[in-house]
C-alpha cells in the first residue's frame, strides 16, 4: 500500500492593510495533500484566528486584492487553474485606489 503523506510548503507574504489585519508580515504554511489553488489557500488563510472570518476570501472575490505567485500577478478568474506547488512564494496585496 502506498501511503500518501505528501505535503507542501508555501511562503505567503502580506502587504499593507492585509499585513495589519493578519497581524504579521508573512507566514510559512505546511499544507497536507496536493492540488491546491489560490482560492483554497485563501480559504485556509481566512480561517486564521487573527483575521475576521472569511475577510480575505471576500476581499479577493470583490476584486480588492492583487495576488502574485513567484512574483507574477495571477489572472483574475483563472486562479482556479493555477495549482500551487512546493516552495511557491505568494504575495497578497490590497489594491490601492487613491490619487
Amino acid at each position: 500500500m502506498i501511503v500518501n503523506d505528501s505535503s507542501m510548503r508555501l511562503y505567503v507574504r502580506f502587504y499593507a492593510r492585509i499585513k495589519e489585519e493578519m497581524g504579521r508580515e508573512a507566514v510559512n504554511l505546511n499544507v497536507k495533500g496536493s492540488a491546491m489553488n489560490i482560492i483554497d489557500l485563501l480559504r485556509i488563510l481566512s480561517k486564521d484566528k487573527k483575521m475576521r472570518k472569511g475577510t480575505l476570501i471576500d476581499y479577493y472575490l470583490q476584486g480588492k486584492l492583487l495576488i502574485a505567485v513567484n512574483e507574477e500577478i495571477i489572472r483574475r478568474n483563472e486562479e482556479g487553474k493555477l495549482i500551487l506547488k512546493d516552495g511557491d512564494i505568494i504575495d497578497i496585496m490590497p489594491l490601492p485606489s487613491g490619487g
Binding site: 502587504y15 499593507a16 492593510r17 490590497p94 489594491l95 490601492p96 485606489s97 487613491g98 490619487g99
Partner: peptide, 10 residues
C-alpha cells in the same frame, strides 16, 4: 497608471 493608499502605491 499609478495609485496610492497610505504609505503604499503602484
Amino acid at each position: 497608471h499609478g495609485a496610492v493608499n497610505g504609505f503604499n502605491g503602484q
